[in-house]
């Protein structure tokens, strides 16, 4: 395991301990990605409102991981399937927004999201040539807008 992965594990364990979460931290490391997953129950405090806490832990994990200097891998912090659930929820929201935008012919604003979530939705909808997406507003209210494509598909 890389020094970066060790540093990420140490950070996640340190935060979890303060939140009285003793669940094990699982590390899966490839050349592209280091994923640290906190296991256990009642992880709501670790995740936070709209994922604000887990995203803060992930930001800090990226800082300490890349400081270790032996990896270029993307660093992800997860909690018992949270990222997958969140991705599914965001994709459903994106599908609904695209549907509504096409039916009404008007732009549809999504809820405020973090930069990484906006990117996820933007990339998800890139496969749909009938709509386009762009960001509006300032943090922490910055959000994606889904609009009918200005250039006709095909």
């Amino acid at each position: 395991m890389s020094a970066a992965a060790d540093a990420v594990r140490e950070l996640v364990e340190r935060v979890a301990k303060t939140l009285e979460l003793e669940g094990p931290v699982e590390i899966v490391e490839t050349d592209e990605e280091i994923v640290a997953t906190l296991h256990g129950e009642d992880l709501g405090l670790f995740i936070g409102r709209h994922g604000s806490t887990i995203d803060a832990v992930q930001h800090l994990a990226q800082r300490v991981g890349h400081k270790a200097g032996d990896t270029e891998a993307r660093i992800v912090v997860d909690a018992e399937g949270y990222r997958e659930r969140r991705r599914n929820a965001l994709e459903r929201q994106a599908d609904r927004a695209a549907h509504d935008a096409l039916r009404s012919g008007r732009p549809v604003a999504l809820d405020a999201m973090t930069a990484s979530e906006r990117k996820l939705v933007h990339e998800y909808l890139r496969d749909n040539s009938e709509v386009e997406t762009y960001s509006e507003g300032d943090e922490p209210d910055r959000h994606l807008v889904v609009a009918p494509a200005t250039t006709p598909a095909g």
Partner: peptide, 17 residues
């Protein structure tokens, strides 16, 4: 200020209980 904000966020979470 992203790292400072992240520190504030985890500290806030630690004080919830």
């Amino acid at each position: 200020g992203r790292t400072a904000n992240a520190l504030r966020t985890i500290v806030k979470a630690s004080a919830v209980r």
